[in-house]
């Protein structure tokens, strides 16, 4: 959850964000948004058997391997986060 939200009085919204991982908000950084998008996509690939098969055929791997690699990639799909400005 973003730190900006902590300072808003809208604790209900904060609660909702905690509950529904992946929900965006106005102060979201590009990196956060992209990471969420990628995680959603990756989980969609794992969750739809046809997409897993499609990827497995294209990539010449077993579907089990594709599922594993996609799930692994969810940890950090877009590389490390950008360094925060110190100011």
């Amino acid at each position: 959850m973003s730190s900006e939200l902590r300072y808003t009085a809208n604790t209900q919204l904060e609660h909702l964000h905690a509950r529904y991982t992946g929900t965006g908000h106005a102060d979201m950084s590009k990196y956060d948004w992209l990471t969420h998008q990628h995680r959603d996509t990756l989980s969609s690939i794992v969750g739809h058997p046809t997409l897993t098969s499609y990827l497995a055929i294209a990539d010449g791997e077993a579907t089990g391997r594709i599922k594993f690699e996609m799930t692994e990639r969810m940890l950090q799909p877009c590389g490390p986060p950008p360094a925060k400005d110190e100011d």
């Binding site: 969810m74 940890l75 950090q76 590389g79 490390p80 986060p81 950008p82 360094a83 925060k84």
Partner: peptide, 16 residues
């Protein structure tokens, strides 16, 4: 399970 909280915060990539 794998927790991604720290990897999401660490720009050096070490946490990842």
């Amino acid at each position: 399970e794998v927790d991604y909280t720290e990897s999401d915060q660490d720009p050096t990539g070490e946490a990842f």
